[in-house]
Design a protein around this nucleic acid. Structure first.
Length: 489
RNA sequence: GGCGGCGUAGCCAAGUGGCUAAGGCGACGGUCUGCAAAAUCGUUAUCACCGGUUCGAAUCCGGUCGCCGCCUCCA
């Protein structure tokens, strides 16, 4: 099987071949920490996480960078409004980010470079561009000369001449051309600033990503990710400045995630038309949020809303229930293994039992989906097929499953693999061994007695009571089970 | 105006030339259950419209309509 990846620049899917054998360097555009993270951010980072996890699963040595752009106009604005140092603002939102990164089971990046900690690298890169006459100082700023960049526009499909007509003419007379973008921004009174050959100032937007990406991962990196809305101008400018400076290709595969829609319209901070992760996490478990985000292909525009999350929650419960069932079977089988496990032949790996066949088939389907540009949406569909198939076998003849130790082990291993790649569960596969308070257990026992006596009224009463406490009772052939209520209302 | 994307069932969503168009949610009808829950079975799509290419198209080409994004800070 071969991994295929869609590249935004070439606009097609291609077989993935890393720059260096066995290694993958990924730079994922993180947040400009000027506010709390919203769902759109989280979608992007979950997408990056899936890519990272899968490449590791396939066997690559992955180095994953996710930056924090921790100085910009809005951060400074907020700092001034609150009368604090801009670092206070930046660090506040960085801390926020980490909170939700953990909540959504996003594996930590290997490096979280910050713009303000790479001022020297940034100045060095700007200097290279100035030295080559591709950038110039205008007033206290330094600009990139867009018209001299022959390949400008190749990522976004824009032509320089067409750009100009639509471009807002900025009132910066220091620019030779309105299209030129800022590499270095001279400081005004009261703004954070660093010394540079062009006077005190700070980096413009775009340049920090180029500098940090190249510093840690080299001139040419394997993948650069971020939201679709970063293609222009951010990534276009990154390519322009990076390739102009080094003469080497900047990125091998551009990975852009689709944007989140809210009732058909893009989430947008400026219009207030968005959900903050902070609010959503109050209503839904991080696992459900993550599951929803990854059950659509990351490049698609995705509808987001509470209704969608409720649906995802119901589906997610099906997967969780299967894991719990498998966990119970394993422990039961383990418990009985000492006694009756001689020579019925069931413990032999034959690859022939229905469970083994099912596991093998679904595994292939799942991996094929993931190999196809990390299509986690399709992959999730295969998991559901597995869930239904196992449940069907169980409904037909539970003993078939219960006696198939090898098959159960195969399924369990498969679910662990899915979990490793998709990061479905924060604490590993759910086992069903959840803590239920003593008083609840007491009630359940009481109810079982009532049921034996066919005192249905009392039984229903207790069930309601237990439900009110947040637990669900399921009556089965071997008694009643209790578990925390998992569906989200 | 320029560039790009999308339009698949009640809703969400895979699928980009060829077996019965994944999967989830919901709804309706069965099974199981004391009733539920969980689970399961069945039903619920000629893929926006028109034309073309092809033995064959949701999938390719052309056109029409509709929606959205980018072009300004944005995951």
């Amino acid at each position: 099987m071969t991994l295929k990846v869609y590249d935004t620049l070439r606009r097609k899917k291609e077989e993935f071949k890393p720059v260096h054998e066995g290694k993958v360097g990924i730079y994922f555009c993180g947040m400009t920490v000027q506010g709390k993270p919203h769902m759109g951010h989280m979608l992007a980072f979950v997408a990056g996480d899936i890519i990272k996890r899968y490449l590791r699963f396939v066997g690559y040595d992955v180095t994953y960078l996710q930056n924090f752009t921790d100085v910009d106009d809005k951060i400074i604005e907020k700092a001034n409004a609150e009368g604090v140092d801009f670092h206070v603002i930046a660090e506040r939102y960085i801390a926020e980010y980490f909170k939700y990164e953990k909540e959504l089971n996003i594996l930590p990046a290997d490096i979280y470079p910050k713009a303000t900690e790479h001022i020297d690298d940034i100045i060095g890169l700007v200097q290279r561009l100035v030295d080559r006459d591709l950038a110039y100082q205008g007033g206290t700023d330094v600009y990139f000369r867009v018209r001299d960049c022959s390949f400008y526009g190749k990522l976004s499909g824009r032509k320089i001449d067409e750009l100009q007509s639509g471009a807002r003419i900025e009132v910066e007379e220091q620019k030779e051309d309105p299209l030129d973008f800022t590499l270095w921004k001279g400081a005004r009174e009261g703004e954070p600033a660093w010394d540079s050959p062009w006077g005190r100032g700070r980096p413009g937007w775009h340049i920090e990503c180029s500098a940090m990406s190249m510093k840690y991962l080299g001139d040419t990196i394997d993948m650069h990710g971020g939201g679709l809305d970063l293609i222009f101008p951010h990534h276009e400018n990154e390519i322009a400045q990076s390739e102009s400076a080094t003469g080497n290709p900047y990125v091998k595969y551009w990975m852009h995630n689709g944007l989140l829609n809210l009732q058909g319209e893009k989430m947008s901070k400026s219009t207030g038309h968005f959900f903050s992760i902070e609010d959503i996490v109050k209503e839904f478990p991080g696992e459900v949020i993550r599951f929803y985000l990854l059950s659509t292909h990351f490049r698609s525009t995705t509808e987001f809303g509470r209704e969608r999350l409720k649906e995802a929650s119901a589906g997610f419960d099906r997967i969780r229930n299967l894991c719990i069932y498998l966990g119970e079977l394993s422990s039961r089988q383990r418990a009985s293994s000492g006694v009756e496990r001689s020579g019925d032949g069931k413990d032999t790996v034959t690859g022939e039992s229905p469970l083994e066949k099912l596991a093998a088939q679904v595994k292939v389907d799942f991996l094929e989906a993931m190999d196809d540009d990390f299509n986690s949406g399709e992959a999730v569909g295969h998991i559901f097929r597995l869930v239904r198939e196992v449940n069907r076998l169980k409904a037909d003849d539970p003993s078939l499953i219960e006696n198939d130790r090898v098959g159960v082990a195969a399924l369990t291993g498969l679910m662990e693999m899915f979990d490793g790649i998709l990061g479905l569960f924060r604490d590993g596969l759910p086992t069903g061994d959840v803590e239920v308070p003593e008083d609840i257990i007491k009630l359940v026992r009481e109810r079982e007695d009532a049921r034996k006596n066919k005192d249905w009224a009392r039984a229903d009463e207790i069930r309601a009571e237990v439900a009110a406490a947040g637990y669900t009772i399921e009556d089965g052939p071997d008694g009643s089970k209790v578990k925390p209520s998992d569906s989200v209302e």
